[in-house]
Design a protein around this nucleic acid. Structure first.
Lengths: 158, 158
DNA sequence: GTCGCTGCAAAGTCTTTGCAGAGAG
DNA sequence: CTCTCTGCAAAGACTTTGCAGCGAC
């Protein structure tokens, strides 16, 4: 659906670029560009969340019921994308991994323990410091996750 | 029965306290203090690393071969300890969780997404900044957790 | 047409659960 | 004694693998 207009949104350009990079990578490795691989990449691109293989599979089944994508293909494609550094995976609390596009920004969360309200924030100074820490300890930093738990303003007033 | 620690070192004193707390907690919840629960707590206390259920089980089998501790007991005890906030768990790259005593000083984690190795760190500036962010957004901060994901030095060399 | 890819199902891992006997209180 | 725990093995949950037919190139 790429609109050719003067009004390129930043996202569209990014996706076209991403797709192109992916195609080049596939070609360089003698791998094939399939519709399954395309829709998985697209779905990851359009999701704002970290997706589990299962949730990704569900989304794809709803969005492209005709494709009948198998869960095994989702796992195989995610591994491929991860090996190619196109996506990164994270493990959170429970079992299972979650995947997201490697290039995306992340945000941190302030979570109210009373009402469950979630506020997002990013702090450059913390981001910078995290990189410094990773560097100092010899890590190549890929991502981080940070949650602050507390009581939000409106709950404090009650 | 338990002559687990006869050496009174500084750690032992702390351990006595931890053990006492654990016993009180068990009693308050109508649970029983068993040798298996004791050696699991002791092993977590004496380990400097983050342990997987499997590694913990191996250590226990070597250290107390007569007990024939089952892996299921290790899992059950770790869940109990986690619910009781005595240990905390971390998920890392591959599958599985790692556990550590929660009573240790506060620190954040640097996690290798390749091998699952975990490095601890504390940064005062980040701690301070987190409070500032909470203040600025009107939250009364209670707690936080932060993980940096990356690739450790030795995995980068591979 | 070739050879990699896919869906399916079966096989692997890691973790949890059911049960009967053991053991703490 | 009672009622929880434990070890064992079987069952679950999540992921990977083998295979025959399909499809990109």
């Amino acid at each position: 659906m790429s609109e050719i207009s003067t009004n390129f949104t930043e996202r569209t350009i990014e996706y076209e670029q991403l797709l192109l990079d992916f195609k080049v990578l596939l070609k360089n490795n003698n791998l094939k560009f399939t519709i399954q691989r395309e829709v998985i990449l697209e779905c990851l691109y359009n999701s704002d969340e970290h997706l589990t293989p299962e949730s990704l599979h569900n989304i794809l089944q709803n969005k492209y019921p005709d494709l009948k994508i198998g869960i095994a293909t989702v796992y195989r494609t995610l591994s491929l994308l991860e090996d190619s550094k196109i996506v990164t995976s994270l493990s959170f609390g429970a079992q299972g991994k979650k995947y997201e596009l490697g290039a995306k920004d992340h945000h941190d969360h302030l979570i109210c323990t009373e009402c469950g309200d979630i506020t997002e924030f990013v702090d450059d100074q913390i981001e910078k410091k995290q990189h410094q820490i990773a560097d100092k300890l010899g890590f190549k930093m890929l991502d981080h996750s940070m949650q602050i738990y507390g009581i939000c303003q409106s709950c404090q007033q009650k």
